[in-house]
Simulated assay, not measured.
Amino acid sequence: MEASIEVDGLRKRFGAVAALDGMSFTVAPGRVTGFVGPSGAGKSTTLRVVLGLDVAQEGRALVGGRPYRSLGEPSRHVGALLDAGALQPGRTARNHLLWLAHAQGAGARRVDEVAELVGLGAAIRRRAGSLSHGSRQRLGLAAALLGDPPILVLDEPFTGLDPQEAAWLGGVLRGLAGEGRAVLVASRLMSRVQDTAGHLVVAGRGRVVADLGVDELVADASRGRFTVRTGAREAAMAVLAGAGATVAACGPEVLTVSGLAGRERVEQVLNGAAVPYTEIVAHRATLEEAYMELTR
């Protein structure tokens, strides 16, 4: 089965609300694709259509070249984690996985393999209802991997994880993509997406706003922007703004400057007004800054 997701022209309304308005993108194998956008952008509805949980009024969503509902053994084609809390709280984590494995035709050996892969450790013997949110996310990922699928769809997998857990999960997802899987991650946590995804689909008002590499988006947002370090912040802001720059204070002695023609022009303006500074460097935008600029 081809490891890809194809979303083509999805349109769906809930009454007067257009949840999807021509949503189109492709998730390619061998990389993690981040799916981001504000609340109401259509992310969750798109994932539900991809996984056959909802039906679009127009367009199509294919996994491995086929509609999800046509798959004979879907867990062997697509693994999904939409809600880490969707489990029976009185069942142990291992029994939860055993129950799912039995339904999918897998055995106890596969349960132990995925439990080790996601690092469940001693939590595998605890009741699911007593697990921390981070352990529930690991359990949900283990369940998604039971069928060893070539496609993974994850909704907000970083929510509730501490920095160490989030960094670990990012590494696991990149490793899975490195094996040739297509990995789609919907998330509001831009720093985690930046550390994990190689490609980005930005949604807004039910359609795709941008579809490009993470590095490309960050580079575009960084272009023409400079970081200035100065002990005379107020004077520097005034003189730079007077020269036509857009200036933002990022700290007691740090400014971000855009709108001037290069580093030399920033230097010229500051030197001409005798405003002292210690450093002027090209600004490296964060993914969050790039996202805010794109969706503003």
Score class of each variant (00 low, 15 high):
residue 103 A to D: 10
residue 202 V to Q: 02
residue 19 A to V: 05
residue 73 E to N: 15
residue 78 V to T: 02
residue 223 R to P: 12
residue 69 R to P: 06
residue 69 R to C: 07
residue 190 M to C: 05
residue 53 L to E: 08
residue 147 G to Q: 06
residue 164 Q to N: 13
residue 68 Y to S: 01
residue 1 M to E: 04
residue 32 V to M: 04
residue 5 I to R: 05
residue 275 V to Q: 14
residue 54 D to M: 09
residue 207 R to Q: 10
residue 46 T to R: 08
residue 249 A to Y: 05
residue 124 I to V: 13
residue 107 G to K: 06
residue 106 A to Q: 15
residue 104 Q to T: 08
residue 117 L to V: 10
residue 17 V to F: 14
residue 166 A to F: 04
residue 49 V to G: 03
residue 131 L to M: 05
residue 228 V to P: 09
residue 185 V to T: 01
residue 285 A to N: 10
residue 115 A to Y: 02
residue 154 L to M: 10
residue 114 V to N: 00
residue 244 G to L: 12
residue 151 I to D: 03
residue 172 V to Q: 13
residue 132 S to A: 00
residue 134 G to C: 04
residue 276 P to L: 02
residue 184 L to C: 04
residue 68 Y to M: 13
residue 277 Y to P: 01
residue 201 V to K: 07
residue 231 G to H: 12
residue 83 D to A: 10
residue 258 S to R: 15
residue 178 G to L: 05
residue 95 N to Q: 15
residue 77 H to W: 10
residue 145 L to Y: 01
residue 60 R to E: 14
residue 48 R to K: 15
residue 118 V to N: 05
residue 221 A to C: 15
residue 81 L to H: 09
residue 284 R to Q: 14
residue 77 H to G: 12
residue 111 V to T: 04
residue 126 R to A: 12
residue 124 I to P: 06
residue 290 A to H: 11
residue 213 G to M: 09
residue 98 L to C: 14
residue 46 T to D: 08
residue 241 A to K: 09
residue 153 V to G: 01
residue 261 A to L: 07
residue 233 R to F: 09
